[in-house]
Design a protein around this nucleic acid. Structure first.
Length: 263
DNA sequence: ATGGTTGGTTACCAA
């Protein structure tokens, strides 16, 4: 099975890019974040026409929003809330074969990495804690699960262009990394992208719009992740980050992360 | 140290 995750930064603006991606890459399931569309505005017709008839979504006006765009049947759809807000940051479903796929959009967290000065940072920390609490209550290490999404945290030294310069920049601060690592270790999640790329190698999935030439400056971060639980580890076969899509016309600032896996 | 760009909505907020 081929699973992809992509922060699309408005699914309506970029629906043609989504369809082009589906045609070129042929994923079984594409997980989107930041769809920024209410459910009645979701551009479902183009996706059905492309063969992705099992498409589910959870959106709100202007902000957030997640979707599973699938050409295989999905069962037991869930939309959960974390950190005490009714925002649309999670959707999950069971894949053929029984593995459960969770798609998350973790809050970005604002600019100041201090929850006393910036409640958005507090919300982000609470959200990641909430994820850990949820999996502690509802899941086990033995369950075959795939967790994907824009986690808005780049945990490893070479997940950012400069470890030193980003230590106090939201997305790479020690407290965020600690919470994400705690979530990861709790159920023994395997980082599928890093499974195929040494930790010493730079690996990014996001480049800011605020650079004259994103490729030349290459100030990227790996904010988008695909994790699997241990029962699925032996099935991992290939993982890619489609960096070249950052050069597509009117691109998202994120590019897709893709995994091929036996489930 | 600062500002740089984009999207949704339509005054700025969020990323």
């Amino acid at each position: 099975m081929k699973i992809a995750t992509w922060n699309i930064n408005s699914v309506r603006l970029r629906i043609n890019n989504v369809v082009r991606f589906l045609e070129v890459e042929q994923p079984d399931v594409l997980c989107l974040q930041e769809t920024k569309a209410q459910d009645h505005d979701f551009p479902i017709t183009a996706l059905h026409a492309a063969g992705y008839t099992h498409t589910i979504f959870s959106g709100e006006k202007s902000y957030n929003g997640v979707a599973l765009i699938s050409r295989v049947p999905l069962k037991n759809v869930q939309k959960n809330e974390f950190a005490g807000k009714q925002d649309k940051r999670h959707i999950s479903a069971e894949l053929p074969g029984g593995a459960v796929l969770h798609n998350f959009y973790v809050p970005a967290g604002g600019d100041i990495p201090d929850r006393n000065q910036n409640e958005k940072f507090g919300h982000k920390l609470d959200f990641v804690d909430g994820m850990r609490g949820w999996f502690g209550k509802h899941a086990s290490k033995k369950a075959p699960m795939i967790l994907v999404g824009d986690l808005n945290i780049a945990p490893l030294e070479h997940d950012v262009w400069s470890h030193k310069q980003l230590l106090d920049v939201v997305s790479h601060t020690p407290i965020e990394v600690e919470k994400l690592t705690s979530l990861q270790e709790h159920l023994g999640w395997v980082d599928a992208s890093r499974h195929f790329v040494p930790h010493s190698e730079k690996l990014y999935s996001w480049w800011s719009y605020r650079n004259q030439d994103w490729k030349k400056s290459d100030r990227g971060r790996r904010l988008d992740h695909i994790w699997v639980t241990e029962p699925l580890q032996k099935g991992l076969s290939k993982s890619t980050i489609l960096k070249e899509m950052r050069d597509w016309e009117q691109p998202s600032d994120h590019v897709p992360v893709v995994l091929e896996i036996a489930v």
